[in-house]
Design a protein around this nucleic acid. Structure first.
Lengths: 338, 338
DNA sequence: TTGAAAGCGCTACCAT
DNA sequence: ATGGTAGCGCTTTCAA
């Protein structure tokens, strides 16, 4: 900037204003400045700019697992709004660990990100992290998981609703011994479990507690948990899985045991990850519209950043959608034949 | 920092040094400073620090598609080295578009990232981007794709080798009419095609040019391209696909056409994405060790950043590995029966 | 319309 | 061992 000013024999100020299209600069001067700037390949230094403007145009995105397509899609959705608005996204992987998550957020804040999108790994009831965020008046939006301890902006589906839709569907497909591969002890895991329980109750169906098997959140865990379920007698005839990766693992276990999906055991997951249509057996699932979650969260965050003042916590609830594919579709012949 | 200095009645300098464990500060003073800093919840301002140190501790990662698990895994590998070293990763999605990529890199540089890891979407022969990077002496490492225009550090597999291994395998499995779903016109697409061609030639096998079908890089494209291949006569009995998503799409097309995989058409992909074992037909593939690519690239980049001086372009070649699963395994009965 | 002064929060350098 | 001065590259404020 100095170079430009010297070469053009104007002040640094003039250059600064011209580059930012500030109003009170003559058209002629601005043109000269812009032209020379281009020629010299001038790039504004964002670090310096940030120091005075207190804006970094960086947004942190903390997710539990980048390898899970669900979150990759959320990231993509968020980027589609954030990048055009001039923001960069710093992605951090908490590996589903609350502690790691806290450290990462601290690091992000030390770098003065303008805002945070957070699929939190915090357990229900935890408040420390959220209190800190409030105290420091950080702009942040929770997605996918809403811990009970948080009074914050949120974008996501209602997990009980997901559990209900999935279980309801299995019942309609004729399943009567419906098991659940339960996710971790976070809002999503708990909520889906509750929806499952409640729906069974409403239909007067019993499911022994053994039919609920903890499975974490990835396919390997789904595979192992399903193997355990298959050792029970009577074997379940339907399984609602915490998410699609778990369901994919479960299907593998069922097929390896020599049973058929969906004739012997119907399977449904949640998340509608991109490849679920390509699986061993195309997977029925509850679509949570991950792209839209990312987009809405980004939109809300941008609003928060612009508005400067704290808004009342807003909840944007995305309506989940049942996607029926082969894994839960007991066609007439299959049912009657059994 | 000022507050701490005032409260402790020392200079700002002393505080600054104490906080950074600078050598010439008395143990007592340091302790007092650190203690008060903790109590006040002091967080160093990285922006200011960056302005003077010329280090942002940020690294840019530009990839063509975050949704492709291959790159998600690369990102994870890179993060596993970079984060412990105190670096944050800014991920940008070029959507396989060279122009977008250039803009994103420019934006990253304007923000003074300390380094760049780049799975470039540039076509072979392009030099402008790389010239710019050289001129500005940016620390950067190319991964997965090495455009001919670039004289740069690189981590990845040899694509011709991938094409050879895959084609070789199909031949050993008894395929004689081997088709190829060809990727985009980037080094990976071209290299894999060459390996395929060369291997056919070496074995004296002919494949008409119609057997090479452009398929881009995602499953939808693989699905459509495979449908076209299936209309040819004679129908190919083996297909080497540019990558795993394309292969997944191809398998879907084959099955929908009423043919069997691998008995009628054997399929092999490349990349060994995480879910390829869970697909409709478990997918044979060439493992490129994406985690390791990410790790090595990060390691190399850290070296570059530390060393300060330009090093001679280094090439880290990862040896690909053949993974045989059901999609290409023509078991004895199947072969003899045909 | 232009520019001089001050300062963002921190650190390098040199003096004490 | 401690601190003063200067400056990183830019913007805000206010005076000319």
């Amino acid at each position: 900037m100095k170079d430009i000013a010297r070469a053009l024999d104007v002040s640094v100020m003039t250059v600064s204003k011209a580059l930012r299209n500030h109003s009170d600069i003559s058209e002629a001067t601005r043109r000269r400045v812009l032209q020379l700037a281009r020629k010299l390949g001038y790039q504004p230094n964002w670090v310096a700019r940030s120091l005075v403007s207190r804006r970094t145009y960086m947004v942190g995105l903390v997710i539990p697992d980048l390898m899970h397509s669900f979150f990759a899609e959320v990231a993509k959705g968020a980027a589609s709004l954030l990048e055009p608005a001039g923001y960069h996204i710093v992605i951090l992987n908490s590996e589903e660990d609350p502690q790691t998550e806290e450290c990462q957020i601290a690091a992000l804040l030390a770098r003065n990100v303008d805002g945070l999108i957070l699929a939190s790994a915090q357990r229900n009831g935890t408040t420390r992290l959220f209190r800190t965020l409030e105290e420091r008046t950080v702009n942040y939006v929770l997605i996918d998981r809403l811990p009970t301890g948080a009074r914050a902006h949120y974008v996501g589906c209602e997990d009980e609703r997901i559990g209900e839709m999935a279980t309801e569907h299995l019942i309609r497909q004729g399943c009567r011994r419906i098991a659940h591969l339960r996710g971790p002890d976070i809002p999503t895991g708990i909520g889906r479990y509750r929806g499952y329980r409640r729906t069974l109750a409403r239909h007067g169906l019993k499911a022994p507690e053994r039919y609920v098997m903890p499975a974490r959140h990835h396919d390997e865990a789904g595979y192992e948990a399903m193997q355990k379920l298959l050792r029970l007698r009577p074997v379940p005839d339907g399984v609602f899985c915490y998410n699609d990766p778990v369901a994919a693992g479960a299907i593998r276990a069922i097929l390896e045991a020599g049973l058929r999906v969906p004739e012997d055991v119907a399977v449904i997951g949640s998340g509608n990850v991109h490849y679920s249509d390509l699986l061993r057996v195309p997977l029925s699932t509850i679509d949570q519209n991950s792209l839209e979650i990312g987009r809405r969260a980004a939109g809300l965050l941008l609003e928060l950043i612009e508005s400067k003042r704290a808004l009342n916590p807003r909840r944007i609830i995305i309506e989940p959608r049942l996607i029926v594919r082969q894994s839960s579709l007991r066609v007439r012949e299959a049912v009657s034949r059994g």
